[in-house]
Design a protein around this nucleic acid. Sequence first.
DNA 1: TTGATAAATGCAAGCGGTTACACTTGAGAA
DNA 2: TTCTCAAGTGTAACCGCTTGCATTTATCAA
Lengths: 330, 330
Amino acid sequence: MKPTIRDVAKAAGVSIATVSKALNGVDVVKAETKLKVLAAAKELNYVPNLLGKQLKSGQTNMLGFFTNSVSGPYFYALIESIARTADNMGFGLNVFVTKRHDTIQNYLFGNVVDGVIVFESRITGPDVDMISQHRVPAIFLDRPMVADKIGSITFNSYQEAFDATAYLISLGRRKIAYLAGYPDNYDSNERQRGYEDALKKYGLPVNKDLIILGLFEEPTSYSEMRRFISLHPEDIPDGILAGNDISAIGAMRALKESGISVPQEVSVIGFDDVEIAQYFQPSLTTTRNPIGRQGVLAVKQLVGMISNNDQGQSEVLDGQLVVRNSTTIK
Amino acid sequence: MKPTIRDVAKAAGVSIATVSKALNGVDVVKAETKLKVLAAAKELNYVPNLLGKQLKSGQTNMLGFFTNSVSGPYFYALIESIARTADNMGFGLNVFVTKRHDTIQNYLFGNVVDGVIVFESRITGPDVDMISQHRVPAIFLDRPMVADKIGSITFNSYQEAFDATAYLISLGRRKIAYLAGYPDNYDSNERQRGYEDALKKYGLPVNKDLIILGLFEEPTSYSEMRRFISLHPEDIPDGILAGNDISAIGAMRALKESGISVPQEVSVIGFDDVEIAQYFQPSLTTTRNPIGRQGVLAVKQLVGMISNNDQGQSEVLDGQLVVRNSTTIK
DNA sequence: TTGATAAATGCAAGCGGTTACACTTGAGAA
DNA sequence: TTCTCAAGTGTAACCGCTTGCATTTATCAA
């Protein structure tokens, strides 16, 4: 059986209280005793049961990451930075990809994490109320939000889309499509809003037929793009603003297969600047979103709320257009 | 304060034992009482503290995933399938990306997970002994391994590399380079062994100069490939077996920049068939490794060990060559 | 009505730790 | 020698839950 603190106490010939103090560096134990305890612990390969510790202390030193998906390069860049930062700050990371709402609740409020990072559209209003009520510090990544012990780190999607669209227009593109993401996704909608406002600003018509539903995924973007091309063979746009990079890649594949040249006939812009964007042929013009920074800031703000009782705040990160070879002047 | 089982008991006018039984479906409680308890629990927004539960029951219903990296498309495909399968089987997932060895030990043996999936070269012999001793069920993904309550799910890297190399030879390629991964990585070494054995089998020389260190990463593969080209401009290989897909992509980028055509002058084969391989231009010939299946099987075997006391076993998955446009006959 | 039996419920121990507080010990002062 | 006090150690309560077993209540036959 796994040794407990009692086994160590017995082996060292002291009480469990002394073992606890010796092991946790509470410096009231005599140096000699401490050595005895340490030796006994090592001898038995003792590793403390964290559950006992956590139950007693009310802290788990664990962060939760709740998400509805973990697929796509955006997410792995995000998880990477969250996991690494959490580790650096002395926290472990729990990743929950469940779709079951009751499971989410159980983990969210089951004292299994000290705080949560949320990218999960199924966590809605009532849940947020519960989060407040249970006083679980939370950071939202998929929408701006601020309340007691609740904050957010989001991108400036509206402005980025506005600028990217304006850039396409400056290249002489006049018929620009938007490849939308999930219908109720905040970023996708903000990007669409920025796209439409830019069109208006420069006197171009806003045409709902040019909104294509790519759902942030390659296959969908590819097939919807193909469908669009076959439906309007004479009426191809000369610019595409894709909801994210992988979506842009799907669109470009469809264009290529239809013999339409990128960037000459159609210029394409993505979002995020995920790793593959620069390696792709043609390399992708995109808005670089500081994904890694989003993860870092999320963890830092969260840990601040947990450890220093900080207030939550809504931070908005600016992206930056990176011009590569998928866009050119018309 | 967060309500506890005592609060619910008080509100429902019963004992905590009854609350526990009512809430956990132990069907000895009277229907009427159960209703009262459920109502009180809902009224108070009661969510049980999982730590108490876990400490008492000795089960956490959590799986741990220990890895040294989470970057690259291989890992996110893996995490995705692990997380999803774990969820389907009623387990949560803890992801540990820490480099700190003592942290690994604390989490690994701190009763915070019921079993672990390991892709982490820093977990070596002594740790494995500890794992056995602490009786933590474990699955290794980065090396074959079998012992009591320890199993593995790996790829048939040797055979896959042998076949891929043989395929390049069948296309008339005679000077084939191997773009190696991490030096002490099992898969990378197995692939190299298969590559070398195929060369020997078909009477081609094995030349250590043709082993290029790509480290499984795009930038390294790109720069090492460039370096190779500039050092031996007259002596470019006509085939490249890359340690993984992203590495192949790096090599192709370098070749393209040097004006060397793929697949005509140099044919390139990757490993894994990650999502991007099919979308890339030229689309990548590669060995499809069932990454998703690796994750699924890992979780299933692990849960079998946890719940049914199954024996650990070493499962080896076969890959399959997928021919696309990065290879052609010479 | 009473007793036997079954159905519900409650008491209390215990999971493995931490920690307030009480206790023991020994050194130095009176 | 006796007292005081600091240093070191130990006792026991507690964190929130589950569960074996004792106890209470309900049911029904005699």
